[in-house]
Design a protein around this nucleic acid. Structure first.
Length: 203
DNA sequence: GGTAAGATCAGC
DNA sequence: CTGATCTTACCT
C-alpha cells in the first residue's frame, strides 16, 4: 500500500512525493518541487515555521490526522496552498506542493490561470499549482488515495532530488527542507522571505 | 471585539 | 519592493 510510504518524517515523505502524479479537477501533473513541514515543539520534528508548531487548532487539524490526506489553507488572504499530510496518525507533519509539470488538461489549466501564462508557469508556485489543478479550500481533509476523491495522488519512483532552504518562511529559514528535481523550468526561483532573520542561523 | 501576521503573486 | 485580501489566533 503506497500510503504507508508517507507514514514517515516530512523530509523523507517530501522525497517520496517528488515525481508523484497529482490528479486534480480535469488536470493532472507531475510534482517537481515540494517543501517539508514538521510538527509542534516537543514533537519528533519541531518546526517553528509549521502551522502546527503551536499545537492543534481549527486550521491545522488535518495535519494531525493520518497520512495521505490533503491539507489546504488560504495564504495571505488570496491563494490556496495544498499539502500532503505525512507521519503517523496523531503526529503533525505535511509536505507543501510547490510546483508541478502539467501532463493532461493543459487547456483547462490555461483557462484557470489566464490565457497568456507560459506553460511552464501554469503550476509554478503553491498558489498557482492549486489554481491550475482546481484545488479549493473545500478540499481540505480529503483522502488523496481514495479513487472517489476529486483530487488524487499516485506515488512514482524517482531519483535525483536535490535540497535547499525553504521559500518564503520567516522562521527556521535555513533548514534545507525544500526538495526539487533539477532541470525543470517549472521549479520556482528561490526567494528568501524579507521577514527572515540574518542567514546562517541554526534555528 | 480588535488586531497583527502570514508556507504568495504580480506588477512597478 | 509593494499592495492586494482574508482567515486564524491570540489578546483585552
Amino acid at each position: 500500500m503506497a500510503l504507508a510510504y508517507l507514514a514517515v518524517d516530512p523530509v523523507r515523505a517530501a522525497r517520496r512525493l517528488l515525481g508523484a502524479v497529482i490528479a486534480g479537477r480535469a488536470v493532472s501533473a507531475v510534482v517537481v518541487e515540494v517543501e517539508a513541514y514538521g510538527g509542534p515543539v516537543g514533537g519528533p520534528w519541531p518546526d517553528a515555521s509549521s502551522h502546527s508548531y503551536r499545537g492543534p487548532n481549527l486550521r491545522n487539524s488535518v495535519m494531525y490526522g493520518p497520512p495521505g490526506r490533503l491539507y489546504t489553507y488560504r495564504s495571505h488572504g488570496i491563494h490556496v496552498c495544498a499539502n500532503v499530510v505525512c507521519g503517523t496518525d496523531g503526529v503533525a507533519g505535511a509536505v507543501l506542493l510547490r510546483a508541478a509539470v502539467i501532463k493532461a488538461g493543459v487547456e483547462t489549466a490555461v483557462l484557470r490561470r489566464g490565457v497568456g501564462v507560459a506553460t511552464t508557469a501554469l503550476a509554478r508556485g503553491p498558489g498557482n499549482l492549486c489554481s491550475a489543478l482546481g484545488i479549493t479550500l473545500d478540499d481540505n481533509g480529503i483522502d488523496l488515495f481514495n479513487p472517489e476523491s476529486a483530487v488524487r495522488i499516485r506515488l512514482r519512483k524517482c531519483s535525483g532530488a536535490v535540497a535547499g532552504p525553504r521559500v518564503g518562511v520567516s522562521k527556521a529559514a535555513d533548514r534545507p527542507w525544500r526538495l526539487w528535481l533539477p532541470g525543470y523550468p517549472e521549479v520556482s526561483a528561490y526567494r528568501r522571505s524579507p521577514r527572515a532573520p540574518t542567514p546562517g542561523r541554526s534555528d
